[in-house]
Design a protein around this nucleic acid. Structure first.
Lengths: 253, 253
DNA sequence: ATGTCTTTGTGAACGCGTGCACAAAGATGG
DNA sequence: CCATCTTTGTGCACGCGTTCACAAAGACAT
């Protein structure tokens, strides 16, 4: 079958809802900023505003971690920073490898947000022999041939794939075989992995396409009610909703 | 405090669920690949496998667009490519500006996935005077001073922010004031925008933190049952599933 | 100590998304 | 023309996530 195993059967990890886990880093960032300003306590309302979420949601999220607040006062910033960090596993060191040192891979290697959160770039790996030894972000690029050894030597369990789409699955297979159990995939492909391996994907093109959808809808609505076409590129053709085909099928890929 | 206006009012845009919209680009990519191999038709089962989703979900998604399939046969690939492209607004040209030409901004400028989908990088903008005129991805970087003019001259409605966190809100405000109504934000900050402006954010650090959470959980479970402290790389195959399946790294605006 | 005021923690209702399972629709073969 | 087979389109049920609204808990002043 070789189906891309990527669906989620509602795994409530350790009782903490997945949606909550996804927001914890957001809270952590806001709390870190408060901590740097030496703010001692914060209310759910204030913190929610800083994180851009509903305050009730924030309180419910925190309730999954435990009762860390004080009624009438709020939450202790430092204590909460520690609790969330611990919950997310950021109190330990996570060696990470980045495979595919093109433009994006290099950008990731230079990205400061990793190191500041307990992640350590253990190695940069590329398939191009010409890249071998070349320093990127103060670190020599290593060749794909040594991938397995690098993973093992450094105890890497998290891998970042920034290769072209064509190479992604092969790289993924090798990473998994070498012991990696979490993968962050930037290649525009559906990765197929065995059970027990987590894959998260970031697709820049998809994000833009979603924006384009909403943008088109806004343009359509505006054109329908208001008469003023805003600027140059406003070619809309809505007339949607034709159950039967209205236009032939040809499209630029 | 001025709350970051970033929540989604359950906008069932035009009756198409947000979750479905987020999957359309996925289907489109799989269909494009089929089209290039000159495959005439495809069943929901096959296409679902290629896109990494459930076949029933895929059929339901398509049902929101209309009845474009033929029972007993499947879907016409070319026709479906066109319909989805039209629905996503990819049949028109979308000029995009990228603000902040650091490592990430440069990587985005060079990213081929944009141009291949109807997006056109209209301008690269940076606040550093030293960058002005410097060619990146075959295009001269322009200075922030000209931001408003560039937006207007090119009819740009989609902006990409790849600046440091500190500058993001300011850049965002200027983009919005100049007429941009959709923003893709790579800066690790919560952006505050007026109603009617869509913001999607991609945060690389957050993605890794979510992976770390699951990784820690896996390690903990293993230690609890197996007892043996894993060597460097943990290897197990317990039946827990990945958290993927939807849109990671992104808060619906 | 007592009352008031602030803020948390959560019960409950609701809506969205998912997946099952099946009837309807059309293709295909005799 | 009828029977059979394939595949779509969808009604329905279920569970997760979100939000409201409020009682409980603690701080603080008198």
């Amino acid at each position: 079958m070789a189906t891309g195993r990527t669906h989620r059967p509602a795994t409530r990890s350790r009782g903490i809802p997945e949606a909550t886990v996804a927001r914890l880093p957001l809270y952590l960032r806001a709390l870190t900023a408060l901590s740097e300003r030496s703010v001692p306590t914060v209310s759910s309302e204030e913190l929610a505003a800083a994180a851009g979420v509903n305050s009730a949601k924030l309180r419910k999220d925190f309730s999954y971690l435990g009762s860390y607040g004080t009624r009438g006062v709020g939450y202790d910033v430092e204590y909460l920073v520690y609790q969330i960090s611990r919950e997310l596993g950021l109190t330990q060191d996570w060696p990470v490898v980045i495979v595919g040192i093109g433009n994006l891979g290099a950008a990731l290697a230079n990205y400061g947000g990793f190191a500041s959160r307990g992640f350590r770039v253990a190695a940069l790996i590329d398939a191009d022999p010409a890249m071998k030894g070349k320093p990127v972000a103060g670190m020599p690029v290593q060749h794909t041939d040594d991938l397995e050894r690098i993973i093992e030597d450094n105890g890497v369990s998290i891998g970042v794939i920034a290769t072209p789409a064509g190479a992604a699955q092969q790289v993924c297979d090798r990473l998994v075989a070498a012991g990696v159990t979490s993968i962050l995939n930037f290649a525009p492909t559906v990765l197929s992995v065995p059970d027990g391996v987590d894959v998260r994907k970031v697709d820049l093109s998809i994000e833009l396409q979603i924006l384009a959808f909403h943008e088109q809808r806004k343009a359509g609505e505006e054109a329908a009610s208001d008469g003023g076409p805003p600027a140059a590129a406003a070619r809309k053709d809505s007339a949607d909703q034709g159950p039967d085909g209205d236009v032939p099928a040809v499209m630029p890929a």
